[in-house]
Design a binder for these strands. Structure first.
Lengths: 316, 316
DNA sequence: TGGCTCCCTAACCGTTTCCTTAGCAGGGTC
DNA sequence: GACCCTGCTAAGGAAACGGTTAGGGAGCCA
């Protein structure tokens, strides 16, 4: 019984899927499967059995999952405790939806890091259904994105989602566009849009956009340029494309039901299980400075801190 | 960071010695040392440093020991939870001082096991200073022996410690023997006596028996026959040698300060951390049946359940 | 100083872990 | 029935874990 095995088990139990757990861990799916097999053999219990709904816990697995989760958590605690005792820089691992990770999180964390000297941050992209699991298993400290259940989520910022297209789009000067009219357009979407639990994903579902009309891009920036070049329509944040719209590179289409009001949330473990840095970040996020940064977001890609997303699972 | 490493670390921290931890785990001392080295390197902290008092915790180690101990405990919980979920026999690991392990624990556990069908027991010998650690790290469920601190100890039985010798010993018919008179005798002692924290060990200290006069035997039975053959004197339980005395194979020497009243205790984790079987055993131990067994103990070696002691550390 | 104890390191070795790719198996869905 | 998705197994290889024996070095004590 190793910690790796327990971690794999907990992730599969929480996500209900070996494949997703493997994606979260960044390993191949047989790796997770065999970790599971080893644990099963060691404990002499099936732990998780396949059903049509995904992987479900056996009675034994049900008892184990709580214990295993505690152990994984304690391992994270141990690391943090030693780190702290040695005055090593704190670690703040942020996961966010791709848009936030691209445009908002970097300047936000830059500003926050400027305040407390010894701090090391990382930003990764995750799908919404992975976020609570990542927090609960201490693979991440903070999640920025939609509201999550099972963890503490507090509202962070309010935004408007609009549908945009290039300046030569046939519907560019329409007054009122019924969603069906866009059924034949190509929809250009970023990883956030590919996540059906995200705001953009839910909008696409509501507009009944068929899957075959979607083209998934690796970043919101790519979506924006593709739209400007007339390759299709895109749903994105009004503020992100404000400059493009003002300068005529993009137009906002008056689709019925848009703009959509959306709320970004910041999610963490409950207060008692938070590390001090996380508490500091939460306080920082409610300051005028942080608000200012979030509202200044103008779609220019910040140079510094952004790393390529590593844990993206595409809807495909 | 593996569970083995954490376990080694916790044991060394608790016992203050790599050597003792190795003895408890039943492995060589470099094995423990290198587990520690691996953990040190992984965490980048010395964890434990050598002082003249033994191994002491670094600030980082101090924080880690609690966390690591919880993890080791949870691992034990996990095993037990699965066991229980699958209806596997419960496991009851008893550690005891050598005399108890030889004469008292086997019939006691035989009787207890007779009551609840699915139960698997083991008896091992441990030194008193190891007992609380074994309980706290869940390497054992119950300890029988002297009163322990740091865990729940309740009195189990009262006994008398006497000094005996063979029927031809020069002092066999003395009326009153000062301890000094025995300074030149050979003292025949069993592993319990070699443990300075045990009742016999404390008696030897009080009688100022010099170390070079002690001959350590591997069992109480061996001590008894050696004494009967006139190889020296021995401190042992009155009830154990009653038959030998009645039949003239041994005589009780009227040493000043003896017989010594001693109390055996049964020690466990506090009630909230006990497994159900342990609770059952505690209740059983207070029944007349159990009392009867403990008082019937007559020095005959029970055939069934006794296993050779595995975790004995000799005082040497 | 010499000897002793205790911990650490070195060198070595077998087993397990952990990951990969490739392919099989079983349950849905069309 | 033919697919497709998902999980499992197989095979193989690099790394680690976990153990051993042998020996070096620091501290304590006679």
């Amino acid at each position: 019984m190793t910690l790796t095995q327990l971690e794999a088990f907990v992730l599969v139990a929480r996500l209900g899927s070996v494949k997703e757990a493997a994606a979260v861990l960044g390993v191949s799916e047989p790796a997770v499967s065999s970790a599971l097999a080893a644990l099963r053999q060691h404990l002499g219990d099936p732990l998780l059995v396949r059903t049509s709904q995904g992987m479900e816990l056996s009675p034994g697995g049900q008892r184990l999952v709580g214990i295993a989760s505690q152990m994984v958590n304690l391992a994270a605690d141990a690391d943090a405790a030693i780190r702290r005792a040695n005055g090593a820089p704190d670690l703040l691992r942020v996961v966010a939806t791709s848009t936030i990770a691209e445009f908002v999180a970097p300047p936000l964390l830059d500003a926050f890091t400027g305040r407390s000297a010894a701090l090391q941050t990382s930003i990764n992209v995750a799908a919404s259904n992975q976020m609570p699991v990542l927090l609960q298993d201490r693979l991440a400290d903070v999640a920025l994105g939609p509201r999550l259940s099972g963890v503490d989520s507090v509202p962070l910022a309010r935004h408007k989602l609009v549908v945009v297209a290039g300046p030569h789009h046939p519907l560019r000067s329409a007054v009122r566009i019924a969603p069906e009219s866009l059924a034949r357009s190509h929809w250009l979407i970023d990883p956030v849009g590919a996540d059906p639990h995200s705001d953009v994903g839910r909008l696409l579902v509501r507009l009944r956009v068929p899957e075959r009309r979607m083209r998934v891009f690796s970043s919101t920036a790519a979506v924006r340029s593709a739209a400007a070049e007339g390759h299709g329509v895109a749903a994105t944040l009004g503020r992100l494309v404000a400059a493009d719209v003002a300068e005529g590179r993009l137009v906002v289409l008056p689709v019925v039901g848009t703009p959509v009001d959306i709320l970004w949330y910041v999610s963490t473990l409950e207060a008692s299980r938070r590390t001090p840095v996380v508490g500091q970040l939460l306080r920082f996020l409610s300051t005028p400075d942080a608000m200012h940064i979030m509202h200044r977001t103008d779609g220019s890609i910040p140079a510094s801190r952004f790393r390529p997303p590593v844990h993206v699972t595409l809807w495909s």
